[in-house]
Every structure is written in C-alpha cells, then in structure tokens.
Design a protein around this nucleic acid. Sequence first.
DNA 1: GCTATACTGTGAGTGAATTCACAGTGTGAT
DNA 2: ATCACACTGTGAATTCACTCACAGTATAGC
Lengths: 216, 216
Amino acid sequence: MPDPADALSEHAVERLIAYRRHLRQRLMQGCDRIYSHDLAKPEGVTPAQVRRDLMTIGYTGSPARGYDAKGLITHISSLLDARSVGGFALVGVGHLGRAILDYLARQHPEYKVAAFDVNPDKAGGVTHGCRCYMLDEMKQVLTQQSMRVGIVTVPADAAQDAATRLVEAGVCGLLNFAPVRLRVPARVYVENVDIALRLEKVAFFALASRPKETQE
Amino acid sequence: MPDPADALSEHAVERLIAYRRHLRQRLMQGCDRIYSHDLAKPEGVTPAQVRRDLMTIGYTGSPARGYDAKGLITHISSLLDARSVGGFALVGVGHLGRAILDYLARQHPEYKVAAFDVNPDKAGGVTHGCRCYMLDEMKQVLTQQSMRVGIVTVPADAAQDAATRLVEAGVCGLLNFAPVRLRVPARVYVENVDIALRLEKVAFFALASRPKETQE
DNA sequence: GCTATACTGTGAGTGAATTCACAGTGTGAT
DNA sequence: ATCACACTGTGAATTCACTCACAGTATAGC
C-alpha cells in the first residue's frame, strides 16, 4: 500500500496546507473554480509550482475551467487528515501557550486539548475551555485521551524535560517553540518554531537585503 | 564595496544565528575553542555544513585547535548586526504579542520597542516595560524613534491593515504571525511565522512519516 | 626534531526542489 | 462547425543547497 502521502516533502505539505486554507476562503466568497495562478499569486509561489504540487497528489483540473475548489479541498484533506491526531497536549501555559490554546479553542473546537504547567496555581484550573494539569499527570491523561502531538511552550531550560515527558507519554510529534534542539527518539517528528531566531533574521534582511523578492 | 553579508542565503543566516547562540552558551560554560562537529551536532546539521558556512563568511579556524569561540561570535555579529534596526514596532497586544514583548524586554532590553493596539484600554498603558499606543499614533512614534522592523500579531483580518500602516510608517522588515500573505512593496522584507500551519504540519508528519530523520 | 593525528578548507559531486517551455485540450466566440 | 485562446499536465533543464572526500596543516607526543 504505497500511500502517496508518504512521498510528500515537508515543503510540499506546507504548500498544500496553505492552498487548502486559501481555497476555503475562496469558496466562502462563492468562487468554486480556481486557476493555478489564482492559487499561486497570493501564496507567493509560481503557477507551475501549484500545478506540479497538484500533479504529485494526483488531482486533475481542466484546461479552460481550472480546478474545482470543493473537490480539491476534499482531495487535499483526504491526504492530510488521513490519520487522526487525537488531540494536542500543550506544556507551558505562559503567554505563548495561552495564545495557542486560544487559537485551538476558537478555530478547532473539534480537537481535544490538554494543558500542563509546573505552576500549581495554573494547574487544576481551566484556561480557554481546556483543563490544565500538573506535569506529573501527563502520562495518565495522555494515555487515556490518546493525544499524539505535543506542543512545547516552556522556557528554554525546561524544554528538554517537557519533551522527554511528552515522548514518554506517547506523543509522536512535537511542535517546539523553545530555542533549543530537542533530543528525542528518531520516530518522533519535531517541528521547531524559533521565534527569537526569526526576529533576528528579519532584523538582518530588513536592512541587509537588496530587493530580490518581487511582490505586489 | 561588495559586502559578503549580501551574499548570504536565508538558510545560511538562520544557521549563523543558531551558531552564534550556541557559541555564547558554550562560552558561558567556559569553553573557548570549538570544533565544527561540536557546533554541528546540537544544531542538527553536518560538520561539513558548518565549515562551509564559516568559509562563506570568511572565518578561519585552525586544524587541531578548531575555531575561537569568542572571535567567531564577534565575526558573525559583525555581519548580522552591521546595520542597526533601531527597534521594533509591534502591532496587536494579544497573548502572542505580549509573549513577544515579554521576550524582548527580558532578553533584549537594549532594543527600543513600541506596541500598538486598536483597543483603547490597552493603548496608553505600559505592558512589559513598553509603552502601548493607539494605531493612529504609529507614524509619529516610528518616525521619531526610527524603528525599522514591524511585528504583526493581530488577527488575520486586521493583518493587511497593520502591515500597510507599518510600511507607511517606514519599516523595511516585517515579522508576520497572521495566516495571511501580506501585500507590501518589494523593498520590504517579510518573514512569515504561520503557527496554525506548523500545527497542521506536525499533525501530519507525526502520523504519516516513516522515520527518515536521525537524531539522538 | 620528527611523526602521527585530527582537524580545517574546499573543489567536485549529488540530489532535491523549482522553473521552463511546450504539447495537448476543453471552452466560448464567430 | 470552426477557430483562437488560455489553461493544464509534464519531460527536460536549471538552480540551489548540501554532502563527500581529500589535500593541507597545526598541534601533541615521542
């Protein structure tokens, strides 16, 4: 069973997610057919790239009528949402953690979310419609609710510990916001979102780069 | 004056920032000389990659003694911090915005930071040691304080407006957290941090990927 | 002083991701 | 019915980032 989804590169997946989001938006505006360049321009990629991506996932449009928005959304979703993640376990209920809990509660009420924090004042309470537990309760809670993705929003020095606990509790994917490289078993997928690094990066390119990108 | 800094790719800059961070850490541990593999492993890159990067920026180590940590930090910094960003202007004082203000106040007290929000309750106040202004005051504040980088932490539907205002107020770099592609003049550098997308990406790879990455 | 060693610096090679460019095709206009 | 057009699907070309592999060299040990 050679699932085509396993052949997707990280970049390809990112683009597919972006396409889907854009398509949903278009659909709500009552636009049910879309051309590769309509999808490409706002996402900052070339039309050829879009066509190539859709080819890879085996979706076919029609010349002179483009792609069917609804069908394409369904097709992308069938690849991306094939396996259920169960829910998310977030460690570190600071500002960033709350921002994400907020987002999840608002945009994805269908997902189960559990929050964890060292601070006993936070634990036991309910933040943004989601129970907050003590760190020690993690394994128990996760096994029971079968959550497969962990979100690390603790300070750098607590990140490795949080990650280890999450992995031991059975997650197989981590979204790490701490500016640290997590050491985890190879089977666990780690996605790093290093905000501090990005901040420094913009600062650099804002002033160093001679315009090479084209937009607008 | 062909500045070597202008030849750096986005990836290279990201790595250099990571190297520098790691070097500072090592230095604090009293380790003043470092080999390419010491720098590579924890950052998840190959030693060859490190050597190549340092070659590109024209830093030279010595066989059998490696690179001088302090000198390397200085060298990297001379490239990355060549031009002063002046400071940061953040729009959208929600949870995410506060998380970033927090970080900046704590880690980079040397930067000037101004916050902006539509909510008049927030405006006028002081959050994490940083004045919060009304949106309309932006142009005035920024011109006066010459801030060159904008941070967009508002909801998706307000992002384009925030970006436009920031650009008009003179920023030349944007760090955008809204899940939207900003339309700005080509001279402005935009760095997107799409947390929702990353979340979907982890969810996908957590369950789809057959281990290919090697860590630990 | 001489030698073995473990590193650096780098030309060449590899592989992936993106773009080019064009043949094929369905649609709307005439 | 025919034609012109603007799009898709895709092999080939290109670009880019990364890795290999080895020659060159400074140090530590003898």
